[in-house]
Protein backbone atom coordinates (compact mmCIF):
# COMPACT_ATOMS: atom_id res chain seq x y z
CA UNK A 1 0.00 0.00 0.00
CA UNK A 2 1.37 3.41 -0.95
CA UNK A 3 1.42 6.26 1.52
CA UNK A 4 -1.12 8.01 -0.66
CA UNK A 5 -3.56 5.10 -0.40
CA UNK A 6 -2.94 4.86 3.34
CA UNK A 7 -3.56 8.59 3.66
CA UNK A 8 -6.86 8.26 1.82
CA UNK A 9 -8.02 5.40 4.08
CA UNK A 10 -7.01 7.31 7.20
CA UNK A 11 -8.83 10.41 5.94
CA UNK A 12 -11.99 8.29 5.75
CA UNK A 13 -11.33 6.91 9.21
CA UNK A 14 -10.87 10.37 10.72
CA UNK A 15 -13.94 11.75 8.92
CA UNK A 16 -16.07 8.95 10.37
CA UNK A 17 -15.05 9.62 13.98
CA UNK A 18 -17.90 11.07 16.07
CA UNK A 19 -17.68 14.85 16.45
CA UNK A 20 -15.61 15.42 13.33
CA UNK A 21 -17.12 18.06 11.07
CA UNK A 22 -14.53 17.65 8.32
CA UNK A 23 -10.96 16.58 7.69
CA UNK A 24 -8.76 19.43 6.47
CA UNK A 25 -5.59 19.12 4.41
CA UNK A 26 -2.36 19.26 6.42
CA UNK A 27 -0.58 21.13 3.66
CA UNK A 28 -3.19 23.39 2.11
CA UNK A 29 -0.83 25.22 -0.22
CA UNK A 30 0.71 22.07 -1.60
CA UNK A 31 -2.73 20.54 -2.03
CA UNK A 32 -4.03 23.63 -3.80
CA UNK A 33 -1.01 23.70 -6.09
CA UNK A 34 -1.49 20.03 -6.96
CA UNK A 35 -5.15 20.67 -7.77
CA UNK A 36 -4.24 23.58 -10.03
CA UNK A 37 -1.70 21.44 -11.86
CA UNK A 38 -4.04 18.49 -12.29
CA UNK A 39 -6.90 20.65 -13.51
CA UNK A 40 -4.60 22.54 -15.88
CA UNK A 41 -3.40 19.27 -17.36
CA UNK A 42 -6.92 17.82 -17.23
CA UNK A 43 -5.67 14.85 -15.22
CA UNK A 44 -8.26 12.70 -13.47
CA UNK A 45 -8.48 13.52 -9.76
CA UNK A 46 -8.10 10.75 -7.24
CA UNK A 47 -11.33 9.27 -5.90
CA UNK A 48 -11.00 10.51 -2.37
CA UNK A 49 -8.94 13.28 -0.86
CA UNK A 50 -5.76 12.27 0.90
CA UNK A 51 -5.70 14.89 3.63
CA UNK A 52 -4.00 12.89 6.39
CA UNK A 53 -0.23 13.16 6.37
CA UNK A 54 1.77 9.94 6.74
CA UNK A 55 5.50 10.13 7.49
CA UNK A 56 7.62 7.00 7.84
CA UNK A 57 10.37 7.15 10.44
CA UNK A 58 12.43 3.94 10.31
CA UNK A 59 10.24 1.27 11.87
CA UNK A 60 7.69 3.85 12.94
CA UNK A 61 4.94 5.90 11.41
CA UNK A 62 3.89 9.45 12.21
CA UNK A 63 0.31 10.28 11.27
CA UNK A 64 -0.80 13.92 11.31
CA UNK A 65 -4.49 14.76 11.08
CA UNK A 66 -6.08 18.22 10.86
CA UNK A 67 -9.78 18.42 11.54
CA UNK A 68 -12.66 20.77 12.00
CA UNK A 69 -14.65 19.60 15.02
CA UNK A 70 -18.39 20.05 15.54
CA UNK A 71 -19.42 22.22 18.45
CA UNK A 72 -21.97 19.62 19.60
CA UNK A 73 -19.27 17.30 20.99
CA UNK A 74 -16.49 18.53 23.32
CA UNK A 75 -13.39 18.97 21.16
CA UNK A 76 -11.07 16.99 23.50
CA UNK A 77 -13.46 14.02 23.27
CA UNK A 78 -13.50 14.29 19.47
CA UNK A 79 -9.71 14.55 19.17
CA UNK A 80 -9.20 11.50 21.39
CA UNK A 81 -11.73 9.54 19.34
CA UNK A 82 -9.90 10.47 16.12
CA UNK A 83 -6.53 9.43 17.58
CA UNK A 84 -7.95 6.12 18.77
CA UNK A 85 -9.59 5.37 15.43
CA UNK A 86 -6.43 6.24 13.49
CA UNK A 87 -4.28 4.14 15.79
CA UNK A 88 -6.65 1.19 15.38
CA UNK A 89 -6.71 1.48 11.61
CA UNK A 90 -2.93 1.75 11.27
CA UNK A 91 -2.62 -1.31 13.55
CA UNK A 92 -4.92 -3.28 11.22
CA UNK A 93 -3.21 -2.17 8.03
CA UNK A 94 0.38 -2.21 9.26
CA UNK A 95 0.69 -4.64 12.18
CA UNK A 96 4.48 -4.56 11.71
CA UNK A 97 4.74 -0.86 12.54
CA UNK A 98 6.36 -0.65 15.98
CA UNK A 99 6.08 3.00 16.90
CA UNK A 100 2.93 4.75 15.74
CA UNK A 101 2.77 8.41 16.65
CA UNK A 102 -0.51 10.24 16.10
CA UNK A 103 -0.94 13.99 16.05
CA UNK A 104 -4.44 15.41 15.84
CA UNK A 105 -4.97 19.13 15.57
CA UNK A 106 -8.30 20.98 15.53
CA UNK A 107 -7.93 23.97 13.18
CA UNK A 108 -11.54 25.02 13.50
CA UNK A 109 -14.51 24.39 15.75
CA UNK A 110 -17.61 24.35 13.58
CA UNK A 111 -20.35 26.36 15.28
CA UNK A 112 -23.18 24.87 13.22
CA UNK A 113 -25.40 22.82 15.52
CA UNK A 114 -26.14 20.17 12.90
CA UNK A 115 -22.54 19.70 11.77
Amino acid sequence: MTDDELSRLLTETAAAAPGVSSVLPTAPLREAAAQVVSSALDLPRSDADAFVQVDRTGAGVLVTVHVSTAVGVPTPTTLRAVARAIRGRVGELHPEAIAVSVRVRALHIDPRPGA
Partner: peptide, 10 residues
Protein backbone atom coordinates in the same frame (compact mmCIF):
# COMPACT_ATOMS: atom_id res chain seq x y z
CA UNK B 1 2.52 8.52 21.55
CA UNK B 2 -0.52 10.68 20.87
CA UNK B 3 -0.42 14.45 20.82
CA UNK B 4 -3.63 16.44 20.55
CA UNK B 5 -4.08 20.15 20.16
CA UNK B 6 -6.47 22.93 19.26
CA UNK B 7 -5.06 25.94 17.44
CA UNK B 8 -5.34 29.43 18.86
CA UNK B 9 -7.26 30.44 15.72
CA UNK B 10 -9.82 27.69 16.39
Amino acid sequence: MTSLSVTEAA
